[in-house]
Design a protein around this nucleic acid. Structure first.
Lengths: 336, 336
DNA sequence: CTGTTAGCGCGTTCAC
DNA sequence: GTGAACGCGCTAACAG
């Protein structure tokens, strides 16, 4: 197993020159004569020479690999984001290693530890629902590994963040419902430890206030994004004395879970109760009755921006970690 | 950037012993006295020592990384398979680097090249629709990197393969339709360069023959799995003088595309025309009107088996590449 | 313009 | 039981 790999040493022997000459020729160092350089390149091609990244790592202390931690690859939002990440990373010559937390704290910790051990040059992360303690991330950064959070960014934590203007999106979404004459609007939100949940809540409350509608704590539900919890909270909403006429959900999946609850109870979604959601996932195109509208979050673009930010930090020549940055992208309400 | 990492050298200095003693102590070499060993471990913990994988690579010629090449992470089948791959790999101490071909030959070639360059210990691949030339895979194997294909395995290529008994699945699916009294059954298949397409065709033909039904070349369509092509081929089916009463599709997505074509033409799916598909993706639970049945392919399990096979080859102590293996998993028709 | 040499972090003889 | 020294493949500082 594992056949022999060609090294610069062999190229040097083949040509009867020294390895450093080969090394420099391969880097197109102008100090090497054109003829030698061409010969070296020719032999390298012939022998299918490929530089050994481990050796380069030892010298440069760079693996040209970034780690990506996300909850579930199966969520279309994340698989789209990965595409953005991959496109930028590959183009810059970096490999991408992926790990799923499955929304478990322990898996997340292990993934980060594994990234540390394998000496990735940087990490992009979207945190698990279970996570409330961020010391594993802090430690990573303290050890000198640049870290960028995206979408599910932790609240109250100084860090590099790429997220989108959820608050505005939520406001627009509620406004859209109000324009359709709906006044009793509930919010089926995500975990309360996510900043992205707060923002939905804030946008929701801003719109309620601005348009002088009413709401109540019983109209505002947090979920852990699981199917079970979503169904449970939706049932609570339906059991209220004055059930809502419309529901704004944390994402498309929650809307679909909630709509299934409605159907089971003989309530027709988007007729008896209107749904508006976040994410605008491509899968909704397969649905006969998707949410009325969804706040597009441009997952691919978010992946791109997060990676660009990470790259700029990694390639920062200074010794010090640059100050944390926060990039906020726009959203867009897509009406179906 | 990139803070200093602890090495065995520092542990040695700290304790005033030599680095080789530290190295051995860390490997629990019995030749090292128990007291020294314990001290070394203690200091290593304190300093958060983690061995440098690149250095180990140079010695052992192993990266403890596997490359996974697949068409689209957004397809639920593949994101589920990845989970199986990840679970096995992590448990065995391997990292997973992922690359998407997006069904483009060129991207696939580049991904394989990148895997070669980064010296992954092995590769798991599912080939792109565009691919008809497999020399990049062959070259990888010739260079000594173990390779396992899964699901979309190339035809007429000696290789390690993990796939499922599609032929039987297709047979069952057609049988299911026949039992419902349907006789005019068409096949909306995948690319003809996939073995998995052939198998669907074979199972289909076997059932047609066994139950003495009729079919014709115009009932059998190949697609490249894209939305456009699927719609086009479906329209051809509907335009036939004797349109089919039921359609067996390559996967769930194709069924959904085809059902959309029907709806546009006022044909009610699963009433006017019945649909049965492959994959049984979780997303179909969100649909009001999913295919009548779908052949479950156990994606997660396929990922697990592929990784186990790869691991067994990687960890094979012999110098020679072991003979190619083919693992065939069962399928199950799931009725919705 | 090119060769020599040291060293990145680690495992591994070979000595003692 | 422990240490010194070499080498994995490569780059870079130092010679010439």
């Amino acid at each position: 197993m594992q056949r022999h790999q060609v090294t610069i040493k062999e190229i040097a022997q083949e040509l009867g020159i020294s390895i450093s000459t080969v090394s420099r020729a391969l880097q197109n160092n102008p100090r090497i004569g054109l003829r030698t350089r061409e010969q070296v390149w020719k032999v390298a091609k012939q022998l299918h020479y490929v530089p050994n990244p481990a050796a380069i790592f030892l010298k440069k202390n760079r693996t040209f690999t970034i780690g990506v931690l996300l909850p579930h690859l199966q969520e279309e939002f994340f698989s789209m984001a990965i595409s953005g990440i991959e496109d930028v990373a590959l183009q810059k010559g970096y490999n991408v290693v992926i790990s799923q937390s499955r929304d478990k704290f322990e898996r997340e910790e292990n993934a980060i530890k594994s990234f540390r051990n394998s000496r990735v040059d940087g990490v992009i992360a979207s945190v698990a629902t279970e996570t409330t303690n961020y010391s594993h991330f802090k430690e990573l950064e303290n050890l000198g590994t640049p870290l960028v959070f995206f979408d599910r960014v932790p609240r109250n934590l100084e860090a590099n963040k790429v997220r989108c203007s959820i608050t505005e999106g939520a406001f627009e979404a509620v406004e859209f419902l109000i324009n359709r004459g709906i006044t009793k609007i509930a919010l089926l939100n995500g975990p309360s430890n996510f900043e992205v949940s707060d923002e939905r809540l804030n946008g929701y409350l801003m719109a309620i206030k601005k348009f002088k509608l009413q709401t109540s704590p019983s109209y505002i539900k947090s979920t852990d994004l699981s199917k079970e919890d979503s169904i449970c909270k939706m049932e609570e909403l339906l059991a209220l004395k004055v059930p809502p006429e419309a529901i704004l959900t944390f994402n498309d999946y929650l809307a679909l879970y909630a709509m299934q609850v409605c159907k089971q109870k003989g309530i027709v979604p988007n007729k008896d109760i209107s749904f508006v959601s976040f994410a605008n996932l491509p899968m909704t195109i397969y649905l006969d009755n998707p949410p009325l509208a969804s706040v597009e979050q441009f997952a691919y673009n978010m992946g791109v921006k997060a990676t660009e930010l990470l790259m700029s930090i990694i390639e920062n020549p200074s010794e010090e970690m640059p100050p944390h940055q926060e990039i906020i992208l726009g959203t867009k309400l897509i009406i179906h």
